[in-house]
Design a binder for these strands. Structure first.
Ligand SMILES: Nc1ncnc2c1ncn2[C@@H]1O[C@H](COP(=O)(O)OP(=O)(O)OP(=O)(O)O)[C@@H](O)[C@H]1O
Length: 735
DNA sequence: AATGGCGCCCATTCA
DNA sequence: GGGCGCCATT
């Protein structure tokens, strides 16, 4: 038993985490401490020693990609398939349970998953029906409040009880209607996926028992980012066997804004007093300098369990901090860094990641990368499946699978235009309301509808009969064949093919790409896993990272959130300015500021060898009330939290700007002054100053770095040479 | 009913 | 910057 191959290549604590099977366990895995290795080993070990069969294990991962990789790695090591193993994200596992148990909630297993956009459309529709003014109370806001409530496990009843002011009472009304409409539509939103299984578990204890008995071992990754619903989900399912192992790092909890509760991990010991806690504290990923700097930053947080990360790796290079004039200069500096890493150090592009706080920041970077011919890929941003032409095709498929999906039906009923305009739609809605049927049924019964003129009736009949014909083929044809037929019969790509607009060309290509992905899906799967319903579910639950190919030779651009769990030899974090990172909203709230700091910590600890941190003294902003305005920035407070010994600072003065702040920024101004003092403390050498060297001649100071060995200066001389000098020995003359 | 123009409004992060 | 809703025109 002890010789299980799954115990090899593990350090003592890792091995302890893998071997312990006597009860609940919390593995506190610091950044880069080999959490992935432990999870894979533990899963394999459980099966290898016969503690549990694959079908008796529930393993929750953060992305589908991680789930697939874990499964494949274990299968390879065990040289057997792991059929029956439940492994996936919370959302996909919950969707799987809901598909099995749907009827208990008045749903069918062909339910649709609504994204935020679908939710907003539905709410809009409901509010219009309730004669509410959608310009005063906005559907977007209602969706947000409902989602937040669901995250707190507050249903419409509980929300109504707590509703105080007029707006909240109105939202409560909408919330009730929303829940009814969702059931009518046979649809779940993202929050429902997590909540509804709990409702089933509490209403039908025998169903809960079935799953409790089934799962002898429960493994959860990224436990620090679980929300209330996920917490109960795990608690319920592991209540019988109490064989639950959660892995996480409280310093990497970054999803509070969508309901994640760091207390879940902080209080694990209270929930399971008999639990074993193992700390993984040896970092295998980063250089000592990067790790120590990251440790120093995160030490400013208070909500921690505490651990001391250490490393046997080499010290490595200093962290390089760049101050640039604006977002374009910043982008330029990024390309210079990449150029240097690739040309001078011989790195591949895919060893480099550029991270930012908000997706909007990618624009300036993309422009510059294109101009410099640097290959790049963007993770996230406007997603493929969110494009209009893709949503149109998917809406057709959704209606075929789930005719009760009125949001999708409304989208396609007059697209491409077929003469069924808003007036006719209203008549159909009226009929549906009067006869207490769905919109789809109202279309089927259009002959009974006296309000609609015959000419339009015929158009509706043609439309609904085409859909019905296709529905009959659902069981015979593959998902791909159905999709192909939908695109052809409804001429979804035809309308773009006769255009020479670049935009339409792109739409055509996107539809083809979608069809290719469905074809791939049909080839890859068989049986109940190959249905159109399953394809639509996969598409809804796909994560940004799932679509990312790390082997592609290109620089990866993504948000810090997306970078969680990844590692790169070179990491460049941009936009390190107070107000952007940390964001303005978080500055007045300690909890949120700590979360921003954790996000910064996550970013830093993605780097193996080189870490570059950039900020722009001025940046144009498009969101918010000051749209299009330029902001004068101060460097992120997080930059100041990195001890001077670990960083070298550079200022790009190509576009020298005066630091000037208006009154409202006086507090930040204070910080800015601290910063300058901090950088050059007691030194006559200041960034931007000119000096004269006996052999190199005149030069300008790019960076000042104090350390035990003395004051290190980086100077660019008039012949473009850049030298690093120690001020005490260089015999420089100040100019 | 369809189409094109104009003005308004964005929570930042994600499944 | 861009998506969406409203309005005027055909
Ligand atoms: N026992 C070990 N010996 C040598 N290297 C190891 C060992 N365990 C893990 N590693 C290496 O450490 C690196 C980081 O591991 P991993 O990606 O699992 O980090 P992690 O713990 O998930 O970190 P994070 O939470 O920051 O994402 C990997 O490159 C992995 O190969």
């Amino acid at each position: 038993m002890a010789s299980s191959k799954f115990l090899q290549e593990l350090n003592t604590s890792q091995r302890e985490a893998v071997e312990y099977l006597d009860g609940p366990m919390l593995v506190l895995a610091g950044a880069g401490s080999g959490k992935t290795r432990v999870l894979i080993s533990k899963l394999g070990y459980l099966i290898d020693i016969g503690f549990a069969q694959p079908h008796e294990i529930l393993a929750v991962t953060f992305t589908n990609k991680a789930a697939n990789e874990m499964k494949q790695r274990v299968e390879k090591l065990l040289k057997r398939g792991l059929d029956g193993l439940w492994i996936g994200t919370f959302h996909s596992i919950c969707a799987r349970i809901l598909r099995i148990e749907a009827r208990h909630l008045g749903y069918t297993s062909d339910f649709t998953i609504y994204d935020v956009d679908d939710q907003i459309r539905l709410i809009q529709q409901l509010m219009v029906g309730m004669n509410m003014d959608t310009s005063v109370l906005k559907p977007r806001q209602v969706q947000y409040v409902i989602s937040q409530s669901k995250n707190k496990l507050l249903g419409p009843k509980e929300f109504e009880e707590r509703a105080g002011d007029f707006t909240e009472r109105k939202i409560a009304q909408i919330y009730w209607e929303y829940e009814v409409a969702m059931r009518r539509n046979n649809a779940f939103d993202f929050d429902d996926l997590l909540i509804k299984p709990l409702e089933i578990f509490t209403q039908y204890p025998e169903i809960l028992e079935k799953y409790q008995n089934k799962f002898k071992y429960v493994l959860v990754d990224e436990y620090q980012d679980t929300n209330r619903a996920q917490y109960y989900f795990i608690k319920y399912l592991s209540a019988t066997h109490r064989h639950v192992c959660v892995v996480g790092d409280e310093d990497q909890s970054i999803y509070r804004w969508r309901g994640a509760d760091i207390d879940n991990i902080l209080n694990f010991e209270k929930d399971y007093p008999e639990c074993k806690i193992v700390r993984l504290e040896q970092n295998y990923r980063s250089t000592k300098i990067i790790l120590d700097a990251a440790n120093a930053v995160v030490a400013n947080n208070t909500r921690r369990l505490g651990k001391t990360l250490w490393s046997e790796n080499k010290h490595g290079a200093q962290i390089e901090v760049y101050s640039t004039a604006d977002e374009n200069a910043e982008a330029h500096q990024v390309t210079e860094i990449i150029h240097n890493e690739v040309q001078q150090k011989g790195r591949n592009y895919n060893e480099i990641a550029v991270l930012y706080r908000t997706n909007a920041q990618s624009r300036a970077l993309e422009d510059r990368f294109r101009r410099k011919n640097i290959p790049y890929i963007i993770v996230g941003g406007t997603k493929f499946y969110e494009r209009k032409e893709i949503k149109d095709v998917l809406a057709y498929l959704r209606v075929l699978v789930n005719p009760r999906d009125s949001v999708a039906l409304r989208r396609i009923i007059n697209f491409p235009t077929r003469g069924i305009g808003p007036a006719t739609l209203q008549k159909l809605e009226d009929y549906a309301f009067l006869h207490k049927v769905g919109l789809y049924q109202a279309l089927l019964e259009v002959n009974e509808n006296e309000a609609i003129p015959l000419s339009i009736k015929n158009k509706i009949i043609e439309f609904i009969e085409t859909l019905e014909d296709l529905r009959e083929k659902l069981t015979q044809l593959s998902a791909y064949e159905i999709a192909r037929e939908v695109v052809d019969t409804f001429r979804l790509s035809a309308q773009y093919s006769h255009s020479d607009l670049l935009e339409d060309q792109a739409r055509l290509e996107n539809i083809n790409e979608l069809l290719n992905s469905i074809a791939e899906f049909s080839e890859r799967n068989s049986g109940p896993e190959a249905t159109l319903q399953k394809y639509l579910e996969d598409v809804s639950l796909i994560t940004d990272i799932d679509r990312w190919d790390p082997s592609f030779s290109a620089v990866t651009l993504m948000t810090l959130h997306s970078a969680k769990g990844l590692e790169f030899p070179v990491v460049i974090i941009t936009g390190n300015e107070d107000g952007l990172f940390p964001l303005f909203r978080s500055l007045s709230n300690d909890e949120e500021l700590e979360e921003e700091r954790r996000l910064f910590y996550v970013g830093m600890t993605r780097a193996k060898e080189n870490l570059y941190l950039l900020w722009a003294r001025q940046r144009r902003r498009f969101s918010g009330e000051n749209s299009g305005m330029s902001f004068r920035n101060t460097p992120s407070r997080f930059l100041l939290e990195i001890p001077a010994d670990f960083k070298s600072e550079f200022t790009d003065t190509s576009n020298e700007l005066e630091y000037s702040y208006d009154q409202s920024y006086s507090q930040q101004r204070q910080r800015m002054d601290d910063y300058v003092v901090d950088m050059v403390e007691e030194s006559q050498y200041k960034i931007g100053n000119w000096v004269k060297h006996p052999t190199f001649g005149k030069g300008q100071i790019l960076a000042v770095n104090r350390s035990r060995t003395g004051t290190k200066l980086t100077v660019v001389f008039e012949n473009k040479q850049i030298k690093k000098l120690i001020a005490e020995y260089a015999n420089l003359e100040l100019l």
